[in-house]
Design a protein around this nucleic acid. Structure first.
Lengths: 343, 343
DNA sequence: CTGTTAGCGCTTTCAA
DNA sequence: TTGAAAGCGCTAACAG
């Protein structure tokens, strides 16, 4: 039975052009060492047959897939979407495709990453929640890899992230400048490394200034989480609340509004991440974020270099110097923060 | 020179277990026709060697990749993120991976889809902007395919989308119930099919009721677009504005607030899509959206069936009955709409 | 510059 | 039930 319009193979192109498959391959892959006349014949044959090389076969032969995997905790979070977008655009510009793998539950994180690596040349781990030890071992296995928003204890591994401590410093100084002394942190997911680092940074800042007080409450990472804890925030009596991220801040803000609490008159509020929403919605949210370069783009730069290295593994070229980019966030001052007033 | 920790091949497992590669393949792929004792030996060998089949080789051999491509116009839009998330989760549950391809410019849409199809078993086209004719031809080439938010003129092609007309009907009836007669549509991207269909639906509704007036202004699809056209909206004197989507509505809302316009007292405002933001931010936005089933999940259901069909292409089984799912949106009544007041 | 020849690692007939 | 052998479609040594 005749396969209906099975796509042509390199063999058919070779026959049509009256040359060998190797020659077809050379022409189509831009090898200069080929007779111009033959090249034209081959291209014509390929054109009329509408030949497209089978990528799977090529991948098997070359050992490369020109695909990278992005392992991401939550496709619903705007932060991660920005990273996905950045890395997708950068990678595609270099001819690489992006496979997306969402981590359903933190326990499956390592397994998913390993699985993803089997069909890709490299992987980007975004905000992995696993332990340092597990992470170190994993990274070694699935290398080349770049970590986003997380570093490891092993200095060999590349990473890119925001300097959370610097960001928190800017926020706290901003609040302190407004006279706030009694701070509250609405914390993110307990397993989130970003959350732990932000909290640690806050503690360090507050410890350095005896006038300051810091408390924290459990919250979460989404709009609904902020909304939910609003009352608890009020009960605390703090004059300023630093939310784990922008979504939480917006959730809080919404609920405050409903409760008749005026932000920033009654309470100052800051976010983190600098998502678009924070700059457009009313009132504009005070937050910190990275402006020019997004982590996704940087991650691709780092990753590409490592892919090339491991391609040219003939000479290991022990130049695995640590690539560790720490992006400096900028404070974005909105209307959600203001001077302390007696209430 | 010794490859450092090259991953083991099926041949090495076969040697370690003292069997042929074929047997290893059978055991690992769950063929029942294999001696239990041998099966155990093979599994042990595979286990100690930490053997993982090379997927590229398997793909070449089987002709399947267990990967699908999602071709999406804009990774920044929450609507599309929901679709990506839905399809990603559904596909992964069935052992399929998802490749994401963002369409940089509408002209490259078809090319990108074709390219994506080369490394995948099927593709999901989300809100394609190309002409019907181009689309029809493309779909035939890259089949199996499912269209999201777009139908074709060819009844053979599967699609899933929201019933925009039904959604608009609910919004308009809601507004009319509040006494609004003078409506304004803040339109989306001109090439967007969703935009055209929403506008068409609006026209039909307004034409059916002589009391109603409809005007429309050019706007866009993002927060900033809504923000930008706020003044123009006010100048129109309309009492109710239907925004192309929720983002536009939020942008409008923000700017209205800044301009001292009270929503909904001075102006009623509706969105479209029902993104999470609309239900959490203040005031809650009146919009329409799909609640239970998201388009991504449905798309996977449709696509899986078609993949199976084309796998079993021995008997074409001309059961390509049209799969055309039209999801019924529900109105979500928020605080952004209210009765007409004299202003 | 071109063709021949080996594979890449796996699955899958086909015999035994 | 198992093994031998062919082949998926391509690239890349190596001769010529």
């Amino acid at each position: 039975m005749p396969r209906r319009s099975a796509s042509p193979t390199i063999t058919q192109v070779a026959e049509a052009a009256g040359v060998s498959r190797a020659t077809v391959s050379r022409v189509l892959n831009g090898s200069t060492r080929v007779d111009p006349g033959i090249a034209i014949r081959v291209r014509e044959a390929a054109g009329t047959l509408r030949y497209r090389p089978n990528l799977t076969a090529r991948n098997l032969s070359t050992g490369r897939t020109l695909t990278i995997a992005l392992v991401i905790p939550d496709l619903g979070n705007p932060m991660f979407q920005v990273i996905l977008r950045g890395i997708s655009r950068a990678a595609e510009a270099d001819g690489y495709s992006v496979l997306v793998a969402e981590v359903a539950s933190p326990e499956r994180e390592a397994a998913i990453a390993r699985e993803a690596r089997r069909q890709c040349d490299a992987v980007v781990l975004v905000s992995p929640r696993m332990d340092d030890q597990v992470l170190d071992e994993l990274v070694e296995q699935i290398s080349p890899v770049v970590l986003v928003n997380r570093r490891t204890t092993d200095p060999r591994f590349a990473s890119v992230g925001i300097d959370y401590a610097a960001g928190m410093k800017q926020l706290v100084e901003h609040l302190v400048g407004f006279g706030h002394r009694d701070l509250l942190y609405a914390s993110g997911p307990p397993r989130s490394v970003a959350n732990r680092e932000r909290l640690t940074a806050l503690h360090a800042l507050v410890d350095a200034d005896p006038a300051l007080t810091l408390r924290s409450i459990r919250c979460g990472s989404g709009l609904a989480d902020g909304y939910r804890v609003a009352a608890e925030v009020l009960d605390s009596g703090a004059t300023a609340v630093l939310a784990f991220n922008d979504l939480v801040a917006h959730g809080l803000l919404t609920r405050m509004h409903e409760l008749g609490v005026d932000v920033p008159r009654d309470l100052s509020l800051t976010g983190f991440d600098g998502i678009e929403l924070s700059r457009v919605l009313n009132p504009h949210m005070t937050t910190v974020g990275q402006e020019e370069l997004d982590a996704g783009t940087v991650a691709w730069t780092l990753l590409r270099r490592r892919i090339q290295r491991s391609d040219a593994q003939g000479r290991p070229e022990q130049d695995d110097a640590r690539d560790d980019v720490l992006l400096e966030p900028q404070i974005i001052i909105g209307d959600s923060t203001g001077p302390v007033t007696s209430r």
